[in-house]
Amino acid sequence: MRILVVGAGAVGGYFGGRLAAAGRDVTFLVRDKRAQALRESGLVIRSPRGDLTLRDVHTVLSDTIAAPYDLVLLSCKAYSLDDAIASFAPAVGPSTAILPLLNGMRHLDVLKARFGEDKVLGGLCMIASTLNAGGEIVHLNDTHGMVFGELHGGMSPRAQAIGLVMEDAGFESSASPQIVQRMWEKWTFLATLAASTCLMRAAVGDILATPDGRAVIEGILADCREVAAHNGHQMPPEFDARANQMLLQPSPLTASMLRDVENGSRTEADHILGDLIARGAHAGPALPPLSPLRIAYSHLKAYEARQVRQARQAPGG
């Protein structure tokens, strides 16, 4: 199976690097600068699950893609989706499967509209990773897993074939017959974590140490669960257990979106929070204007507006 990994960043580079090290046929779709860096230094992963330096990395530029790939692994930021689609479109043929690892749901609508529903799988990953100043992939926690499946449910031969390719590749992976439900579960959890930690600019433990911190997290979680339920996705008991452990017990846990805010970077607020709010209004009663989730979203949009204003006011802006 010929696999094209779009980018060689914190997520795609990690999973693609592990797959390549396991002997799979992996090519990274990158820009000139990243291709040069990979030629010079290789693809480097620093991880509690084992470091890896991959030499002779196979790379391709968008304008040099010569034939379709069997599987396209996509893990870009949501706001870069259109650019990513333009770059890998030449790699999509009649039998290509596209496996996106983005959070939320909007990207599925965009990909299906562009390539057709039969080309697109559902997927999610569980990993915290980043690129350091030297371009190395730094794995920040002990978790590194991937789940995927057919959007219409069930277990297809295609999903089973991809499962075999992912098996024993240096990370946990599984094909799910209910991938859309699994994606909604992750979205509900992640939106709660992102909204809570960004609104309060603090880790879960710090929020819980405040007089009303627990109520803030619980209020945001209730909003997210309500939207999921209106869209036909109730959270199962195992979700409740995980949410209680991860969101309502003191810990240093934060969302990567908070790191984006602290670094003055662009966020995925529209994709993770805004689209969730919009889907709630489409499928059921809209969340009230002062609901915790909407307040958190407005907080992030105010941050974005300030970033734009300051950029315009800067010399040369």
Rank of each mutant, 00 (worst) to 15 (best):
G116H: 11
R55A: 10
L74K: 03
P100Y: 14
L102R: 01
G123S: 09
A113Q: 06
L124E: 00
P48C: 09
I85W: 08
K112T: 12
L61F: 11
G123D: 13
L54M: 07
L99T: 04
H107K: 04
T96Y: 07
I65Q: 06
L108Y: 05
I65A: 06
V120P: 15
A97Q: 11
Y69W: 10
L73Y: 04
K112M: 15
G116I: 11
D56C: 00
A66V: 02
Y69G: 01
K77F: 01
D56P: 14
G93T: 05
Y79C: 05
A89G: 01
A113R: 06
L81E: 05
M105I: 14
L111H: 06
G50Q: 09
A97E: 05
A86F: 08
A84R: 13
S95R: 12
A84H: 07
P100D: 12
A67M: 10
D56K: 09
S80P: 01
R49D: 14
A97I: 02
A91Y: 03
F88M: 04
K77D: 04
G116T: 10
D82V: 15
L61I: 00
R114F: 07
I98H: 01
L99G: 05
S80V: 00
G116D: 10
D82Y: 14
R49G: 11
F88V: 08
A97K: 11
G122Q: 04
C76T: 15
L102S: 03
L71Q: 03
V72C: 08
F88L: 08
D83P: 05
G50L: 15
D109M: 05
F88R: 07
D51A: 05
A86W: 00
G116S: 10
T96I: 01
G104N: 08
H107F: 01
H107G: 07
A113P: 03
A86Q: 08
M105Q: 15
A66N: 12
L52E: 02
L101K: 02
S47M: 12
L54D: 02
L61E: 08
P100A: 12
L111W: 07
R114Q: 12
P90M: 15
G116K: 06
L101P: 00
A91W: 04
L124S: 04
S80G: 05
A91I: 14
S47K: 06
L99Y: 11
G50F: 12
L73K: 01
R114S: 07
R55K: 13
L52K: 02
D83K: 09
L61H: 09
R49Y: 02
A84L: 09
A91G: 08
F115K: 04
D118K: 13
A66I: 03
L54Y: 06
L101W: 02
A113N: 07
D63F: 08
V92D: 04
L73A: 01
T96P: 03
V110P: 09
T96E: 08
P100Q: 09
A91H: 11
G123T: 13
A113C: 03
G122E: 06
D51G: 01
G122P: 11
D51R: 04
L61C: 03
D83T: 14
F88H: 07
A78S: 14
F115D: 05
T53N: 09
C76I: 06
